[in-house]
Design a protein around this nucleic acid. Structure first.
Lengths: 307, 307
DNA sequence: TGCATTGTGTAGATTGTCTACATGGACGTG
DNA sequence: CACGTCCATGTAGACAATCTACACAATGCA
């Protein structure tokens, strides 16, 4: 019945513990517990269940939480509407990004938005690409996935595609392959590779190369940080798969990029949001800025390669 | 921001005055006024405007009220969901009907529903067919309209069609036309008519008859109550247009019905609801009962005429 | 000019929600 | 196996929000 309480249930579904909900909503755990108790009494059936020292939702609880999300969406639409009437996007917007996307998009976005809209950015290196979990904490989550791989569909999150970035093969200057216009899977066998940490999405493409070429790649190192990988490549210690638009930032001209043919080699960069937050006017404004900046980046590179 | 306040604004849009809202929500007008004031302060722009001694919404106010309706709908969906979990349609349902529909459908509906679901019925003779106004007061409004005439579309109301009832020409026993299988517009010229009160929907069909036959009908009396009209017809004082399924209730066999050909002569019987109320499980249950009872009535008459 | 009606202020009561603190169970560890 | 930690949940009181009761101003109607 009461929206505040429903919202609390929804937060519990998202965050998994009463204390986390309390922390997120600036309340004491006791207050949260009491409100959930009231909700349960009103509902007339158990919504939560103790499990160990924690608390999990019953199936009824999950169902209610899901419809609570719908309520939150329509409520956010209402406040967005009146923000539009005032021409004033209220509140601040928080955003997490993985490093390369931030480096590529955020400076331009901040310039587009101007000083009126406060955008709080953070970067986070998602070890196991658990991007969706961040949507509880941040309004917008910049995430990347391989094309066709919808790893975060069906969780009830809003997904806005921003751009697709090709993944090229990065070579040191003077490498035997560096005078080629492009390279294929078979060209890459026998090379020493600088790989990414296990579980990173690039790995799928490396596997695809092995599959296509019918041989294993020799992986000398595994790093998570892209700048580190590049410095190894530049130093001649191996070659690596690198995103086209964000490579060679530190030492321009010392890293050679070659398109990879014969394999779908690109990543999707998307914005992930909880649906209610996606309705906020301020959030929508930031998303629009992200989209136009992404288009700008894609365009500027396509004209470069067209030369 | 606050749902309660939004709901108040929505009620104001529906009912048009603070006192009416106060009455409907079991509050004092002062409380309503204060809450609206708070909402306006939060919104940052005027939502209402004085007009005479009353209050009207500004365009911003209307827009907010409309999105408040969406919030109410999703909230109603949530409570309906948990009603389904408990298998218990909560609350009572109120219903208004015009007399003939009530006589035709309600006894059967009450039987279908059984004693668990409280259905509060009332009848109301809608002088100028202002059915939509009743949706503020009642959960379900049974209304009728001529076919094709969507007099209550676009007001944001939920409309559920229940049945279409043919309108026949009612004759006294022994009338010259009473041995015909059907009658056409031209047969009806020169007869004395018992008409309906001005503004009633049947009137359109009488006009259509005049148009088709190219002559005016002589209208000796004008009544609102159908039973009264019928008694006049039976007494041989004239003929009249009467709904097929609900005629001759009082004096069976003394009223002869003839289908009217050459003119679309039927009325739609529909249920009107505010969209949020339409979501309630209890309301949906009643609607289903109405639909099945309406189908039953239609079916039983079609087999009779097939004999 | 009364008189009813409409919306709105003010003061105080009432209700509901939150915090602070204490309790009890579940888990891991020395 | 006792110990500390973590988590959810009770209890009592503080606090905030909302409502009622009443008074008042403005408008429209007889």
């Amino acid at each position: 019945m009461d929206v505040q309480r429903l919202e609390l249930l929804r937060e519990l579904a998202d965050r998994g513990s009463v204390t986390a909900v309390a922390l997120a909503t600036h309340r004491t755990p006791s207050a949260v517990s009491q409100q959930l108790k009231v909700l349960e009494r009103e509902a007339g059936l158990p919504l939560t269940q103790r499990q160990g020292r924690g608390l999990v939702l019953t199936s009824a609880g999950r169902a209610l939480a899901r419809s609570a999300a719908d309520v939150a969406v329509s409520l956010a639409k209402a406040t967005a509407l009146w923000d539009e009437f005032r021409n004033h996007a209220s509140g601040e917007v928080s955003l997490v990004t993985f490093p390369t996307a931030g480096q590529m998009l955020l400076p331009g976005v901040i310039k587009i938005l101007g000083p009126d809209l406060l955008l709080n950015c953070a970067d986070e290196d998602p070890e196991l690409s658990d991007f969706p979990a961040f949507t509880a904490e941040y309004d917008i989550v910049l995430a990347h996935s391989m094309s066709g791989q919808l790893s975060w569909a069906g969780r009830g999150l809003t997904v806005v595609p921003l751009m697709t970035e090709p993944l090229d093969v990065g070579l040191p200057v003077g490498h035997p392959l560096s005078d080629r216009a492009w390279v294929g899977p078979r060209d890459l066998i026998g090379e020493t590779w600088i790989g990414v940490t296990d579980g990173y999405p690039f790995e799928r493409i490396l596997h695809a190369i092995e599959q296509e070429a019918g041989a294993r790649l020799s992986m000398s190192q595994r790093f998570a940080d892209l700048a580190l990988i590049e410095s190894f490549v530049i130093a001649g210690l191996g070659i690596a798969l690198v995103p086209r638009y964000t490579s060679g930032g530190g030492q321009p001209g010392r890293l050679v990029l070659k398109p990879l043919r014969g394999i779908e080699s690109q990543r999707q960069i998307v914005a992930l949001m909880r649906p209610d937050r996606a309705e906020r006017l301020a959030v929508r404004t930031v998303i629009q800025a992200l989209q136009s900046e992404a288009a700008k980046v894609e365009q500027s590179h396509s004209t470069v390669t067209a030369r």
